[in-house]
Simulated assay, not measured.
Amino acid sequence: MLKKIDNKNMGMSDLGWLRSKFHFSFAEYYNPNNINFGVLRVINDDLVEVNTGFDTHPHRDMEIISYVVDGELTHGDSMGNKNTITRGHVQYMSAGTGVYHSEHNLGKDRLRFLQIWIFPDKQGYKPNYGDYRFDWNKRENKWLHMVSSKDGDAPIKINQDINVYSLELEEGKEINFQVDERRQAYLVQIEGKALINSIELEDRDGMEIVEEDILIHSKENSHILILEMSKEN
Protein backbone atom coordinates (compact mmCIF):
# COMPACT_ATOMS: atom_id res chain seq x y z
CA MET A 1 0.00 0.00 0.00
CA LEU A 2 1.25 3.43 -0.99
CA LYS A 3 -0.28 6.74 0.10
CA LYS A 4 1.03 10.05 -1.18
CA ILE A 5 1.07 12.93 1.31
CA ASP A 6 0.88 16.17 -0.68
CA ASN A 7 2.79 18.94 1.08
CA LYS A 8 0.03 21.39 0.14
CA ASN A 9 -2.33 19.47 2.44
CA MET A 10 0.03 19.31 5.41
CA GLY A 11 -0.30 21.39 8.55
CA MET A 12 1.51 24.71 8.29
CA SER A 13 2.76 27.42 10.61
CA ASP A 14 4.31 30.83 9.93
CA LEU A 15 5.76 32.62 12.95
CA GLY A 16 7.96 34.91 10.87
CA TRP A 17 11.24 33.58 12.22
CA LEU A 18 10.01 30.00 11.73
CA ARG A 19 7.98 28.53 8.87
CA SER A 20 7.03 24.87 9.15
CA LYS A 21 5.23 22.08 7.38
CA PHE A 22 3.91 19.35 9.69
CA HIS A 23 3.69 15.80 8.36
CA PHE A 24 1.72 14.84 11.51
CA SER A 25 -0.38 16.68 14.08
CA PHE A 26 1.76 19.24 15.89
CA ALA A 27 1.24 22.54 17.73
CA GLU A 28 -1.82 24.32 16.31
CA TYR A 29 -2.29 21.70 13.58
CA TYR A 30 -4.44 18.87 14.92
CA ASN A 31 -5.89 16.08 12.80
CA PRO A 32 -7.20 13.10 14.81
CA ASN A 33 -6.63 10.90 11.77
CA ASN A 34 -3.00 11.98 11.44
CA ILE A 35 -1.34 11.69 14.84
CA ASN A 36 1.49 9.29 14.00
CA PHE A 37 2.66 6.58 11.61
CA GLY A 38 3.73 3.58 13.66
CA VAL A 39 6.41 4.73 16.11
CA LEU A 40 6.97 7.90 14.07
CA ARG A 41 5.32 10.79 15.90
CA VAL A 42 6.70 13.99 14.31
CA ILE A 43 8.31 15.11 11.08
CA ASN A 44 8.47 18.89 10.89
CA ASP A 45 10.07 20.50 7.84
CA ASP A 46 11.37 23.71 9.44
CA LEU A 47 12.75 26.91 7.88
CA VAL A 48 14.54 28.98 10.54
CA GLU A 49 15.72 32.53 9.90
CA VAL A 50 19.22 33.75 10.81
CA ASN A 51 19.92 34.53 14.48
CA THR A 52 16.69 32.89 15.64
CA GLY A 53 15.72 29.47 16.88
CA PHE A 54 14.16 27.37 19.59
CA ASP A 55 15.19 28.63 23.03
CA THR A 56 15.80 26.20 25.90
CA HIS A 57 12.81 23.91 26.50
CA PRO A 58 12.22 20.43 27.97
CA HIS A 59 11.58 16.98 26.48
CA ARG A 60 11.20 13.51 27.93
CA ASP A 61 10.63 9.94 26.70
CA MET A 62 11.20 10.67 23.02
CA GLU A 63 13.95 9.82 20.52
CA ILE A 64 14.68 13.05 18.61
CA ILE A 65 16.58 13.23 15.32
CA SER A 66 17.49 16.40 13.42
CA TYR A 67 18.56 16.18 9.77
CA VAL A 68 20.00 19.34 8.22
CA VAL A 69 19.01 20.11 4.63
CA ASP A 70 20.64 23.56 4.32
CA GLY A 71 22.40 25.96 6.67
CA GLU A 72 23.76 25.46 10.18
CA LEU A 73 22.02 24.01 13.24
CA THR A 74 23.55 24.75 16.65
CA HIS A 75 22.47 22.57 19.56
CA GLY A 76 22.89 23.11 23.30
CA ASP A 77 21.54 21.04 26.19
CA SER A 78 21.46 20.53 29.95
CA MET A 79 23.97 17.66 29.61
CA GLY A 80 26.64 20.17 28.59
CA ASN A 81 26.68 19.45 24.85
CA LYS A 82 27.04 22.22 22.27
CA ASN A 83 27.64 21.42 18.61
CA THR A 84 26.90 22.75 15.13
CA ILE A 85 26.00 20.55 12.16
CA THR A 86 25.44 21.36 8.48
CA ARG A 87 23.95 19.86 5.30
CA GLY A 88 23.52 16.09 5.41
CA HIS A 89 24.60 15.81 9.06
CA VAL A 90 22.48 14.30 11.83
CA GLN A 91 22.10 14.96 15.54
CA TYR A 92 20.16 12.65 17.85
CA MET A 93 18.95 12.94 21.40
CA SER A 94 17.29 10.42 23.67
CA ALA A 95 15.23 12.64 25.98
CA GLY A 96 14.56 9.76 28.38
CA THR A 97 13.86 10.83 31.95
CA GLY A 98 14.12 14.48 30.95
CA VAL A 99 16.45 16.96 29.28
CA TYR A 100 16.48 20.66 28.36
CA HIS A 101 17.83 21.74 24.98
CA SER A 102 17.93 24.59 22.46
CA GLU A 103 18.30 24.68 18.67
CA HIS A 104 19.42 27.86 16.88
CA ASN A 105 20.47 29.15 13.49
CA LEU A 106 23.67 31.09 14.16
CA GLY A 107 24.86 30.87 10.56
CA LYS A 108 24.75 33.37 7.70
CA ASP A 109 21.89 31.75 5.75
CA ARG A 110 18.41 30.47 6.44
CA LEU A 111 18.38 27.00 8.02
CA ARG A 112 16.22 24.14 6.77
CA PHE A 113 16.09 20.95 8.77
CA LEU A 114 13.81 18.01 9.44
CA GLN A 115 12.83 17.63 13.09
CA ILE A 116 11.89 13.99 13.72
CA TRP A 117 10.40 12.51 16.91
CA ILE A 118 10.20 8.75 17.45
CA PHE A 119 8.53 6.94 20.35
CA PRO A 120 11.11 4.92 22.34
CA ASP A 121 10.60 1.20 22.93
CA LYS A 122 10.16 1.96 26.65
CA GLN A 123 10.18 4.95 28.97
CA GLY A 124 12.78 6.00 31.50
CA TYR A 125 16.05 5.83 29.55
CA LYS A 126 19.01 7.88 30.69
CA PRO A 127 19.20 11.02 28.48
CA ASN A 128 21.81 10.87 25.73
CA TYR A 129 23.06 13.09 22.87
CA GLY A 130 25.28 12.63 19.85
CA ASP A 131 25.83 13.85 16.31
CA TYR A 132 27.32 12.39 13.15
CA ARG A 133 28.86 14.21 10.20
CA PHE A 134 28.15 11.92 7.27
CA ASP A 135 30.12 12.37 4.04
CA TRP A 136 27.70 13.63 1.40
CA ASN A 137 29.04 11.30 -1.30
CA LYS A 138 28.13 8.24 0.77
CA ARG A 139 24.48 8.77 -0.31
CA GLU A 140 25.06 9.56 -3.99
CA ASN A 141 22.93 7.08 -5.97
CA LYS A 142 22.89 4.65 -3.03
CA TRP A 143 21.20 4.31 0.34
CA LEU A 144 23.12 5.69 3.32
CA HIS A 145 22.04 3.86 6.48
CA MET A 146 22.26 6.52 9.16
CA VAL A 147 20.10 5.33 12.09
CA SER A 148 19.15 1.90 13.45
CA SER A 149 18.06 0.21 16.66
CA LYS A 150 20.64 -0.67 19.30
CA ASP A 151 20.83 -4.12 17.63
CA GLY A 152 21.39 -2.63 14.16
CA ASP A 153 24.55 -1.68 12.34
CA ALA A 154 24.06 2.03 11.54
CA PRO A 155 26.47 4.60 13.04
CA ILE A 156 23.62 6.14 15.04
CA LYS A 157 21.71 3.77 17.33
CA ILE A 158 18.49 4.71 19.13
CA ASN A 159 15.99 3.05 21.45
CA GLN A 160 13.54 1.80 18.83
CA ASP A 161 13.24 -0.69 15.96
CA ILE A 162 13.58 1.82 13.15
CA ASN A 163 16.03 2.44 10.30
CA VAL A 164 16.67 5.82 8.70
CA TYR A 165 18.26 6.12 5.25
CA SER A 166 19.15 9.09 3.04
CA LEU A 167 19.74 9.22 -0.70
CA GLU A 168 20.70 11.66 -3.41
CA LEU A 169 19.59 10.19 -6.75
CA GLU A 170 20.76 11.78 -9.98
CA GLU A 171 18.19 12.76 -12.60
CA GLY A 172 17.19 9.77 -14.74
CA LYS A 173 18.52 7.11 -12.37
CA GLU A 174 16.53 4.43 -10.53
CA ILE A 175 16.90 2.60 -7.22
CA ASN A 176 14.85 0.03 -5.28
CA PHE A 177 13.86 -0.05 -1.63
CA GLN A 178 12.44 -3.17 0.01
CA VAL A 179 9.68 -3.03 2.64
CA ASP A 180 9.10 -6.53 3.99
CA GLU A 181 5.96 -8.17 5.33
CA ARG A 182 4.96 -6.70 8.72
CA ARG A 183 7.15 -3.65 7.99
CA GLN A 184 6.30 -0.15 6.82
CA ALA A 185 8.16 3.01 5.84
CA TYR A 186 7.66 6.74 5.56
CA LEU A 187 9.39 8.56 2.70
CA VAL A 188 10.16 12.29 2.54
CA GLN A 189 10.92 13.81 -0.87
CA ILE A 190 13.19 16.49 0.59
CA GLU A 191 14.33 18.03 -2.71
CA GLY A 192 13.66 17.39 -6.39
CA LYS A 193 11.02 15.33 -8.15
CA ALA A 194 10.68 11.55 -8.44
CA LEU A 195 8.31 8.76 -9.40
CA ILE A 196 7.67 6.21 -6.64
CA ASN A 197 6.09 3.16 -8.34
CA SER A 198 4.77 5.67 -10.93
CA ILE A 199 3.36 8.07 -8.29
CA GLU A 200 4.94 11.51 -8.66
CA LEU A 201 6.35 13.28 -5.62
CA GLU A 202 7.66 16.83 -5.56
CA ASP A 203 9.92 18.50 -3.01
CA ARG A 204 8.50 18.42 0.55
CA ASP A 205 5.92 15.70 -0.26
CA GLY A 206 5.70 12.51 1.80
CA MET A 207 4.55 8.93 1.30
CA GLU A 208 3.33 6.10 3.52
CA ILE A 209 4.57 2.67 2.36
CA VAL A 210 3.15 -0.50 3.91
CA GLU A 211 4.46 -3.99 3.04
CA GLU A 212 5.33 -2.98 -0.53
CA ASP A 213 8.66 -2.69 -2.33
CA ILE A 214 9.21 0.52 -4.26
CA LEU A 215 11.13 1.63 -7.33
CA ILE A 216 12.27 5.24 -7.32
CA HIS A 217 12.86 6.95 -10.65
CA SER A 218 14.38 10.41 -10.34
CA LYS A 219 12.84 13.00 -12.68
CA GLU A 220 15.14 15.64 -11.18
CA ASN A 221 18.08 15.29 -8.83
CA SER A 222 16.29 13.96 -5.77
CA HIS A 223 17.20 14.15 -2.09
CA ILE A 224 15.16 11.55 -0.16
CA LEU A 225 14.81 10.31 3.41
CA ILE A 226 13.20 6.97 4.36
CA LEU A 227 12.24 5.81 7.84
CA GLU A 228 11.58 2.04 7.91
CA MET A 229 9.98 0.36 10.93
CA SER A 230 7.81 -2.45 12.26
CA LYS A 231 4.14 -2.37 11.29
CA GLU A 232 3.13 -3.89 14.61
CA ASN A 233 3.63 -0.84 16.84
Rank of each mutant, 00 (worst) to 15 (best):
D14Y: 02
P127D: 07
L111G: 10
T74M: 06
L15P: 06
F54D: 12
W17C: 07
D135T: 05
M62K: 13
F113K: 07
M62T: 15
H89F: 11
Y129H: 15
G124T: 09
S102N: 07
F24S: 07
P32S: 07
V39C: 10
G80Q: 13
G80F: 01
L15K: 15
F22L: 11
W17Y: 08
E72P: 10
L106W: 12
H75M: 02
Y30M: 08
G96W: 01
T74E: 06
N128H: 15
R41G: 08
A27M: 14
T84V: 04
V90R: 01
D55P: 12
H89T: 02
F22K: 04
G124W: 04
N83C: 03
T56I: 01
L40R: 09
G71V: 01
G38T: 03
S102C: 03
T56C: 06
K21E: 01
T74L: 05
S66C: 11
G124S: 04
F22N: 00
T74A: 14
D109L: 04
H89S: 02
S78C: 14
G16P: 13
T86K: 15
K108R: 08
F113W: 07
A27Q: 08
M79L: 13
G130H: 00
D14L: 00
Q123G: 14
K138N: 15
L15E: 12
R110S: 14
L73E: 08
N44V: 14
H104S: 10
F113V: 07
W17T: 12
P58N: 11
G38C: 02
K138D: 09
S78N: 10
E49R: 15
I64Q: 04
N51M: 12
G98F: 11
E103P: 11
T86E: 07
R19N: 13
H75D: 00
K82C: 11
V90H: 07
